[in-house]
């Protein structure tokens, strides 16, 4: 199993997708920076607010779209690059191959948020020379971690779409749909039932009236488990005709 994980890691070497990881972290950080430049004359710099704004951009705009694309690429690249024959004719079961991909998704997706956190942290010193208090620092870092966990629950959906169509393009479409739909549904009473809007209300309060963490957690757990079971069943039985 460790060998399979090492293989998945090696596959990312010099991949163009690494630029997307950098871009995915950089764009919100730059946007956040300029918003702060614009606001800096009005109010004193607040570490909590600075991290919060970056987190909001990552949560609402960047993560759903970028993660769907990265996950789609991770799970469907072998079909598109025609390396699937080689991947599936080794001495491992297909479920082990899938498991390796799910494991490697953690550092891949985590690197976007870690980079976003570090860029936000670093760029803040343009506005202040004070370090954030320990509680603000750990609270912000915890929120980035929680966002990663919530977004990770969406990995099986994007993976299922990519595997069904054997391409990462539909997964990318799913990401765009997710961003548009979450912005609509977050204003409704279904916010905690919709997998792309529930994280917004768990992590931050977008809709106080319907904030129910337990409902949100159930939504995310179901969102993780149902497509995961589908993938495990489908991928184990699917015929591979090309590649």
């Amino acid at each position: 199993m460790l060998d399979l994980i090492a293989c998945e890691w090696l596959k990312w070497r010099r991949s163009r997708m690494l630029w997307l990881i950098l871009l995915g972290a950089l764009l919100p950080a730059v946007l956040n920076f300029f918003v702060e430049v614009h606001n800096s004359s009005d109010a004193a710099f607040q570490w909590k607010g600075y991290f919060g704004d970056n987190l909001m951009m990552m949560m609402m705009l960047m993560c759903p779209a970028l993660y769907a694309l990265l996950v789609g690429y991770l799970f469907a690249r072998e079909f598109q690059e025609r390396t699937v024959n080689n991947m599936l004719t080794g001495p491992y079961s297909r479920n082990m191959v899938l498991a390796a991909k799910f494991i490697i998704a953690i550092p891949v997706l985590g690197s976007v948020l870690l980079l976003a956190f570090l860029l936000t942290f670093g760029s803040a010193f343009v506005f202040t020379s004070d370090l954030p208090s320990a509680s603000v620092f750990w609270h912000a870092l915890g929120k980035y971690g929680l966002l990663l966990a919530l977004e990770y629950a969406l990995v099986p959906i994007a993976a299922a779409v990519a595997l069904l169509w054997r391409s990462y393009i539909p997964a990318m479409g799913l990401g765009v749909f997710a961003v548009i739909s979450e912005l609509t549904i977050m204003q409704s009473k279904y916010i905690m039932y919709y997998p792309w809007s529930a994280p917004l209300n768990i992590l931050d309060t977008m809709n106080e009236h319907y904030k129910s963490t337990s409902t949100g957690v159930i939504t995310m757990v179901v969102t993780f488990i149902v497509p995961l079971l589908f993938i495990v069943t489908y991928f184990r039985r699917a015929d591979v005709h090309s590649g």
Partner: peptide, 9 residues
């Protein structure tokens, strides 16, 4: 069939 490889490697 076609021998596929990871193009970035």
């Amino acid at each position: 069939e076609y021998p596929g490889f990871y193009p970035n490697l």
